[in-house]
Design a protein around this nucleic acid. Structure first.
Length: 277
DNA sequence: AGTACAGCCTGCCTGC
DNA sequence: TGCAGGCAGGCTGTAC
């Protein structure tokens, strides 16, 4: 699923290909995925691309932005006019294509099988308000050790659920939460306010380390096939998973068996020996 | 205010 | 083989 490293990978890719291009048309195949009138963005050019947590922001020259959330299974695929782009051998649009945005020189396909993701048109002056509830960026200046200590001390929830809470920290989803906690040597079930200061330090380091690793490998294209890069190529961080979807397999560190439990309704993977309960 | 949970939606897996 | 039922999962709205 697209989390911070995946959305950032998409942002960096699109930055190279759609900046300066003009929107010439919008085809909406599922209204829920693009609820507004697309007329307001026709003729506008792409000015810049930014990201806030898992939200991708395409800034246009007419003081509007496209806010994109891929949720669990959304994809953004860039198909240049000059090039044939296939998804699993299929020509675009595919069955799950919900929106097609045409630009001078190519098309951007929004595929979303589960219909959870969406694209909204937002006035740039309202962007901050739209995103105000999202917590600090893990690579930002305001994500300090002190901040992490402060938010963890205030809650009795299992640490993994805090990592997944977008109001506390931006951009971490289920894959990276599992990997971060393995790296930090902390059980996902540990009550957040019971972590020692040493563990919080380890956790902070693990957050930046694992997210950077995800970025370096262009994100993870896991077994569900949801995330791929805008040129339809795969990321490769899934080859480096230590716990995610490795239940029943051996821990690379201690050779005991990786377990799977459900925490807050989400699949949770960990090594009971390496991660302190 | 903090916490828990149903609902959104589809594809995939399991069991009959 | 085909179909029903269960499940996963990010985020929002609602209830406690």
């Amino acid at each position: 699923m697209p989390e911070l490293p995946e959305v950032e990978t998409i942002r960096r890719f699109l930055e190279k290909v759609i900046i300066g291009k003009k929107i010439t048309g919008v085809e909406i195949l599922s209204k829920k995925q693009f609820p507004q009138n697309p007329k307001t963005i026709i003729g506008a050019k792409v000015f810049s691309l930014s990201r806030r947590g898992k939200n991708l922001i395409i800034n246009l020259t007419n003081k509007k932005s496209l806010l994109v959330h891929l949720k669990l299974s959304g994809q953004l695929i860039w198909a240049a006019e000059s090039k044939k782009t296939l998804i699993n051998g299929n020509k675009l649009p595919i069955k799950s294509t919900r929106v097609v945005i045409s630009f001078t020189g190519g098309r951007l396909y929004f595929n979303e099988p589960r219909k959870f993701g969406w694209i909204k048109v937002i006035d740039q002056k309202n962007l901050n308000k739209e995103l105000e509830k999202i917590g600090p960026e893990p690579f930002g200046r305001d994500f300090t050790l002190f901040y992490l200590q402060k938010i963890l001390a205030k809650t009795v929830r299992p640490i993994k659920l805090v990592l997944l809470d977008q109001e506390k920290i931006a951009g971490i989803g289920n894959i990276y939460a599992n990997e971060i906690l393995f790296e930090a040597g902390i059980s996902p079930q540990r009550q957040a306010n019971k972590l020692s200061s040493k563990e919080i330090e380890a956790l902070k380091k693990a957050i930046t380390l694992i997210l950077k690793e995800g970025l370096r490998y262009n994100g993870s294209s896991a077994a569900d096939g949801a995330y791929i890069r805008p040129d339809a190529s795969s990321g490769s961080y899934q080859k480096h998973f230590r716990v995610y979807q490795r239940n029943g397999k051996k821990c690379f560190k201690c050779n005991s068996t990786i377990e799977r439990i459900s925490l807050g309704g989400r699949g949770t993977f960990f090594c009971a020996k390496c991660q302190k309960a």
